[in-house]
Design a protein around this nucleic acid. Structure first.
Lengths: 205, 205
DNA sequence: ATTGAATGCGAATACATATTCGCATTATGG
DNA sequence: CCATAATGCGAATATGTATTCGCATTCAAT
C-alpha cells in the first residue's frame, strides 16, 4: 500500500476499492478486470486508486488478504472434536468447503480458478496449515494406537484433491453429477484414506 | 485454420509454427507468449502466421490437438489388464501421469496450470473418458461380484484429485515432499477408494 | 479565517501486442 | 519460359489498458 489512509473518507475509499475489486472480478472475470472499471464501481477515480495501491496487483493482494481472514474465521468454527466419527468430521469440512466456494456469487470460484497467477498461495497454505492442525488434533484424540507418520503428505493430498475436484465440478460439470453425491463420495475417499494405516495397500480380492 | 497449406514448404511452416508455439509457452510462459516471438522462433514472419491461423488462439488450439494425440497414444499403451492387483494398475497410471507432466520441459505443466483459459477441456475430457474406459474394463474383469454403480463419479473424483495434486506438487512444493512418496500415497488413496463398495463408510475404531 | 497537508480527479501518456495489407518472392502447370 | 496462384514478408495500424501528473478540492490544526 503506497500511502496510509489517515482521514475517514480515505479509509472508506480504500474499503470501497477492495470491495469493488471483488465485485468486478466476480462479475467480469479476472481477465476483464481493469483499474478503470474498479474505480468506476467504487465511485472514485483511477488517480485516487493509485494514491493507496502501488498497482493493480496491490489491490488484488489486499482483496485476498481480506478474504483469507474471512476463511480463517470460518475454519475456526468447524466442529472437529465433537464427532468421534471420522466420516462425519471430514464431511463437515467438505460441506464448509463447498459453502465457501459457492459464496460471494462465484468470486471465490474465479479466484481459485486463476490460482496460479494470483497470490492465492498464501490462502492455500493457510488453509492447508489449518487442516494440518485439525488433523493433528483429531488423530491425537482418536487414533493414538496407530501413528500416522506422514500426516503432512496426506493432508497435502487431501486438501488439493478435494479443492480442485470441487472447482472442476462447479465450473464444468454443471448437472451430470449432483453436488450431494460428489460430497458424499469425496468424504468416503478421504475418510477411508486418512483412517488407513501407512504403507499398507489392500490386495485385490 | 484460415487456409489449407498445399505446398510442401507451407506444410512445414505450419508444423514449425505449432512447435514454436509449444517452445515459447514452455520457455516464456503463457502470459509472455506473443505472436511475434512465436514467428521469430519458427523462423517465419507474423504475416505468414496469419495465413494459416485465424488468430493466436487458433495456433494454441492446434498445439493442444497435437498434444492430445500424443497423450492418447501413451494411454493406449498402459498395461491395465495384465495386473490383477488394483494398486499396481493404479500405480502405473499415476507414474504415466507424472511422466507426462514432466515431459517437454514443463510445457504440459504450464498448460495445465492455465487450464481454465485454454481449450484444455477437450484434453481433460478425453483423458477422463479414457480412464473411464479403463476402469470399466478393469472392474468387468476383476470385480464382477460387486457392482460399482457410480463409477463415473469415482473416475471424475480420482482423475481430478490426482492431476491437480500432482500439479500443485510440481509447481509449488519443490522438495518438501518427495515425488516417490506422493505417488505412493496417491496410489494408496485411489486404490482403496476404487476398491471399496459404494455407500459404505467405515466407522472409526 | 488561514494555511499547509491530505485527498481527489481524469485527460493525457506510455506501452505492449494482436492483426492487417500492399508488395515481393517462389512454386506449379502448360 | 510464362502466367497465375500460392506463399511469404514486416512495417504500419489498431486496440486495450496500466500508470502518471498537474491541478482542484477538502480537511484539520491554529
Amino acid at each position: 500500500m503506497r500511502k496510509r489512509p489517515q482521514q475517514q473518507r480515505s479509509r472508506e475509499m480504500v474499503r470501497a476499492l477492495i470491495d469493488a475489486t471483488g465485485k468486478v472480478i466476480q462479475q467480469q472475470g479476472l481477465d476483464n478486470t481493469t483499474t478503470a472499471r474498479i474505480a468506476e464501481v467504487a465511485g472514485v477515480s483511477v488517480g485516487s486508486l493509485y494514491q493507496y495501491f502501488g498497482d493493480k496487483d496491490g489491490l488484488i493482494e489486499a482483496l485476498m488478504e481480506s478474504l483469507a481472514d474471512e476463511i480463517g474465521t470460518g475454519l475456526k468454527r468447524l466442529p472437529v472434536m465433537d464427532n468421534v466419527d471420522m466420516a462425519a468430521t471430514v464431511g463437515s469440512a467438505i460441506r464448509f468447503g463447498f459453502a465457501v466456494l459457492h459464496s460471494r456469487d462465484g468470486l471465490y470460484l474465479e479466484l481459485v480458478r486463476n490460482w496460479h497467477r494470483l497470490p492465492t498461495n498464501r490462502v492455500m497454505d493457510a488453509l492447508q496449515q489449518h487442516f494440518m492442525e485439525l488433523a493433528r488434533l483429531y488423530f491425537l484424540r482418536h487414533y493414538q494406537h496407530h501413528q500416522i507418520s506422514n500426516l503432512e503428505v496426506r493432508v497435502f493430498i487431501v486438501t488439493n484433491s478435494v479443492l480442485f475436484t470441487m472447482i472442476r465440478h462447479i465450473s464444468q460439470h454443471s448437472g451430470l453429477i449432483r453436488e450431494q453425491e460428489l460430497a458424499d463420495e469425496l468424504t468416503l475417499m478421504v475418510a477411508r484414506y486418512l483412517a488407513s494405516p501407512p504403507d499398507t495397500v489392500e490386495e485385490s480380492p
